[in-house]
């Protein structure tokens, strides 16, 4: 308890120091350049008036933008202007769809691979070659075959989410204790009952670990995928704000992406604890 309090205090201290230093460092000196025609200056924006780059936003600017963006996250002003909550929703929908489809394929297939050494031997080379490929490399192929940017993003998520679940499921199934399988055999449990009542619960913790890794990777990849396909999603939002030079908005988006990723991980972590067993 005391340890947690001390950690929390230290965290606040580090945050305060870092943000404070950032605030001071990013506050611009008073503009010194020659005065411009006011109308022209208005057109150029504040940065250009001083003849400088877009300034790095200060923490106070970011807080202000965060308040602005998160106050009404679900507004829709036409196709090109939607709230950050809507964009996150699109990203989550794609991640969960791609992840769900991947689970539907990876877990049963992993089961078969884990149970059959022949199948393992046959499919392992394919898996080992495809697994290290960046999921974004699939994007052009997906766009070419599917001809739909939204579905292509989901496909990319599907491809990147499949490997950890596939490998963990097959490993979990292949390493179920021989003695538990022997128990099932002496009780004349058929293959289906053995799979459902013995192998699945025995391998569930390993499978859930794979699912947890998968969803983490999927959440990493969705941002990049949406930057490519555009239209909607938090990745698109980040890219769009980069084009607008709204750096503060990008920082807000980064924080939000981190928080949602953490929430997804915690969710899967909780599910993993629910199926965990101890000997």
């Amino acid at each position: 308890m005391a340890l947690r309090v001390r950690s929390a205090l230290l965290l606040l201290l580090i945050l305060a120091a870092a943000l404070g230093a950032w605030q001071v460092a990013a506050t611009p000196a008073a503009p010194t350049g020659p005065a411009l025609d006011p109308e022209y200056a208005k057109l150029l924006g504040t940065a250009a008036q001083g003849g400088q780059q877009t300034p790095m936003p200060r923490p106070s600017d970011i807080a202000e933008r965060a308040w602005h963006l998160l106050r009404d996250p679900f507004y829709v002003h036409g196709a090109n202007d939607q709230g950050i909550g809507i964009q996150l929703g699109w990203s989550l929908l794609r991640v969960l769809t791609g992840f769900g489809l991947a689970a539907l394929l990876a877990i049963p297939l992993g089961f078969l691979i884990g149970m059959s050494p022949v199948l393992h031997g046959a499919l392992d080379p394919i898996i080992q070659v495809l697994r290290p490929v960046s999921p974004l490399a699939w994007m052009p192929l997906a766009l070419y075959t599917i001809r739909d940017s939204g579905a292509s993003a989901i496909f990319v998520i599907f491809i990147c989410a499949i490997w950890p679940m596939l490998l963990n499921t097959s490993f979990g199934v292949a390493t179920v204790r021989r003695e538990w399988l022997n128990v099932a055999r002496t009780l004349e449990a058929g293959p289906w009952r053995t799979a459902v009542a013995v192998i699945l619960p025995a391998a569930a913790p390993t499978i859930m670990t794979g699912a947890r890794i998968s969803i983490g990777i999927a959440w990493l990849v969705i941002v990049a995928a949406e930057m490519l396909v555009g239209g909607t999603g938090i990745g698109y939002f980040v890219w769009n704000q980069w084009n607008n030079l709204a750096i503060a908005d990008i920082v807000v988006a980064i924080l939000v992406i981190g928080l949602v990723g953490m929430a997804l991980d915690q969710l899967l972590g909780r599910a993993a604890r629910a199926v965990a067993w101890r000997e």
Partner: peptide
């Protein structure tokens, strides 16, 4: 010719299903 319910085994390592 294979395991059957007319023969029960008490395993050395008890072999209980831990879940």
């Amino acid at each position: 010719s294979g395991p059957a319910l007319d023969r029960a085994v008490i395993f050395q390592s008890h072999a209980l299903l831990p879940w």
